[in-house]
Design a protein around this nucleic acid. Structure first.
Lengths: 219, 219
DNA sequence: TAATTTTGTTAGAATAATCTAACTCCATAC
DNA sequence: GTATGGAGTTAGATTATTCTAACAAAATTA
């Protein structure tokens, strides 16, 4: 079975490929904060185990076996986040670091029990889909807020990132999943948006923030 | 901070010293299933960190710092076991293996939350005391069933071991903490005892089992 | 296209945790 | 009081994961 380190590489690769369609060794080395040679040698190791496809100087991808392993780690991570929020009362900004550790626990009954206690949730507290027990994961079809137009009304449905400082930023503005907002205006210069929702008639969100907010249109 | 391996050595040492009053390198090597030289070199490492007292060829003990670290690992283990039983619905025979892994999670807020959700429990599902946040642990003052006499009435209050096969053995006989039993007879030859309780008028328990059952006398 | 920068690779070393083989110390049995 | 067996130690090697230094390939810029 994959070591904790190997699981982290597989998960990182899965996320990179899902988010940007491809991944390189230097992407991995940045995301995991290891040196390039370290990532390079781990990739050789994972190739030997037939978990990643890799040829010298070429971009990386997961084999079917690797993709499945990675999705199961992601399943454990997201189930844990949901459990921490729903069953233990944590805020969505507190759970990532804990889940980063618990995702490596090797105990199918433990995660099955979480899953059952929560009634088999399909998304985590940040709106990301939870892979099923076979490693299948729903595609994320939501739009970025940054791609929407002035006047549109949208519902916040998921987040592309879940760093705790970003989540606290959202908390401070009463932004949570399900909030419906109208795009009041878009600043052409820097792409920042002014949105209105609930008791916030005019909240300005910078472009990097809008890129991370996933929304669906409301009629 | 101590690595997972170091935490396991400290915990093992704590348990050995608590159970038998002292510990040697070979005790450790047997308990942790590592070779003698492996245990030897780890002990040197822990001595360098001032976590254990050790002189060549002498028995081992924990320093105050080491004792505290060990007790905090044990705290995480036992809180986890209690959480798994009380909040997640596991049987007491299922929780040891999971807790062995979760005890190494580094997240004070996670364990504080468990503790709070359960109302600050002081014993785990096997009756063992849970150390407090400062690493203080209550002494276990219970008697072994094997030291009791014919005719005495006792209440099962704790277990000295929590291996899952032992716990299933108890489950199969409807033995759980709190059960009150009367000692019907003791077989002098092998120390086995016949006890009666609830719907079990005459259950025979071997000496090794009786040694692991901790009881208090009922008037 | 040539120069430069970024990315990737190889070589070689370090650390943590483990092992086996060989040797030494110590308690105790005779 | 010596011999013996168990416990402890040392030496040396292995594996996993990491690093830096040096170099090579690919991509980008001029």
């Amino acid at each position: 079975m994959a070591s904790v380190t190997e699981e982290n590489y597989l998960k990182a690769l899965f996320i990179l490929v899902t988010e940007r369609g491809m991944a390189t060794i230097s992407d991995l080395s940045k995301l995991l904060k290891v040196s390039l040679p370290t990532a390079n040698s781990m990739i050789k190791n994972l190739k030997k185990q037939e978990l990643v496809n890799y040829e010298k100087y070429k971009p990386l991808s997961l084999t079917e076996k690797g993709r499945r392993e990675a999705a199961l780690v992601l399943r454990k991570h997201r189930l844990t986040e949901m459990f921490l929020v729903n069953e233990m009362g944590f805020g969505w900004e507190e759970v990532h670091e804990i889940a980063e550790q618990i995702e490596h626990i090797n105990s199918p009954i433990f995660f099955d029990r979480m899953d059952k206690l929560m009634g088999h949730p399909t998304i985590d507290p940040h709106g990301s889909p939870i892979p099923d027990k076979d490693g299948h994961i729903a595609e994320e079809v939501y739009e970025q807020l940054s791609n929407c137009r002035t006047g549109e009304k949208v519902r916040l449905i998921a987040l592309a990132h879940s760093a705790s400082d970003f989540l606290r930023y959202l908390n401070n503005r009463d932004l949570s999943l399900g909030v419906e907002m109208r795009i009041v205006s878009i600043e052409a210069y820097d792409g920042s948006m002014v949105v209105s929702y609930d008791n916030h008639p005019a909240e300005t969100l910078t472009h990097p923030v809008c890129e991370k907010l996933r929304v669906e249109k409301v009629d």
